[in-house]
């Protein structure tokens, strides 16, 4: 079913010990476009991400995903509804190989002990195909047997991206995809995202690198001090006074 709002926050509020990280925040993002969430440090972007994927629960307000209320669902449930995310610091399964990491994302039947024990759930060629495709999109197909703890920071970010792609999803949340990476990796990540954008994937990303964010996004949401202060296409945002004030003032 098509929805015009893939993700919608309605007056969501989250406090941490007296500090309102997210304050009556409302916004919605459209499907099949790349939306960038930007704002100065402390604006609440990561909190929004954590709320969207269920790692945090809002104190008040609601969150819906493609029309379904997800405000109080557990992270696993939200993930099963089609949210895939990367983290600021890549969270890979360090003692497993690259391929094993991505296969875990592709396999949705690995949670049943008995099914797996009796062999009713195996790693099928189809799942391997999905995993390898995601890895080659991210450019990491040659490393599939490497243990993740032996990868460099940039390589880990790419594997994490591949893992999110291999997971069945309708929304991709990318948390600072180019933070701390060298220019070469930044360029290849940009290429990957452009490809995803051409494939009409729904992506919400957050980034400190404004040039990168405004360059890849179709739509931009600007946050400051826990709430949304502007939303629109990149050219308009670049000229928006409120935005300039938030960053410079």
């Amino acid at each position: 079913m098509r929805h015009d709002k893939m993700l919608e926050f309605t007056r969501a509020t989250k406090s941490f010990g007296g500090v309102k990280a997210v304050n009556e925040c409302s916004f919605s993002i459209k499907p099949r476009v790349v939306t960038a969430l930007i704002g100065p440090n402390g604006a609440g972007k990561t909190t929004v991400f954590n709320l969207a994927c269920g790692l945090l629960k809002p104190d008040s307000g609601s969150i819906t995903l493609a029309g379904t209320e997800i405000t109080n669902l557990a992270p696993e449930a939200i993930a099963l509804l089609g949210v895939a995310r990367t983290f600021q610091q890549p969270r890979l399964f360090e003692n497993l190989t690259v391929l094993e990491n991505v296969l875990l994302a592709a396999d949705s039947n690995d949670g049943s002990f008995w099914k797996n024990f009796v062999g009713a759930n195996r790693v099928t060629p189809a799942k391997e195909e999905t995993a390898r495709k995601a890895l080659s999109l991210a450019g990491m197909q040659l490393h599939e047997d490497a243990l993740c703890r032996e990868l460099s920071y940039g390589q880990k970010k790419l594997v994490e991206l591949a893992r999110s792609l291999a997971k069945p999803h309708q929304l991709l949340l990318l948390d600072e995809p180019v933070a701390g990476v060298n220019p070469k990796l930044r360029a290849s990540t940009t290429r990957i995202l452009e490809r995803l954008r051409a494939e009409k994937k729904t992506i919400l990303l957050t980034e400190h690198d404004l040039q990168f964010a405004l360059g890849i996004a179709d739509d931009v949401i600007v946050m400051d001090e826990g709430c949304v202060i502007a939303q629109g296409a990149p050219p308009a945002i670049k000229r928006n006074e409120k935005v300039l004030e938030a960053y410079l003032g």
């Binding site: 790692l55 696993e76 099963l80 399964f93 003692n95 875990l104 997971k167």
Partner: peptide
């Protein structure tokens, strides 16, 4: 592998739907 994923990073495992 799910067990090992839970060991290595439970949060990430849950965010994959496990």
């Amino acid at each position: 592998n799910v067990l090992q994923a839970v060991r290595d990073d439970e949060l990430a495992a849950r965010s994959l739907g496990k």
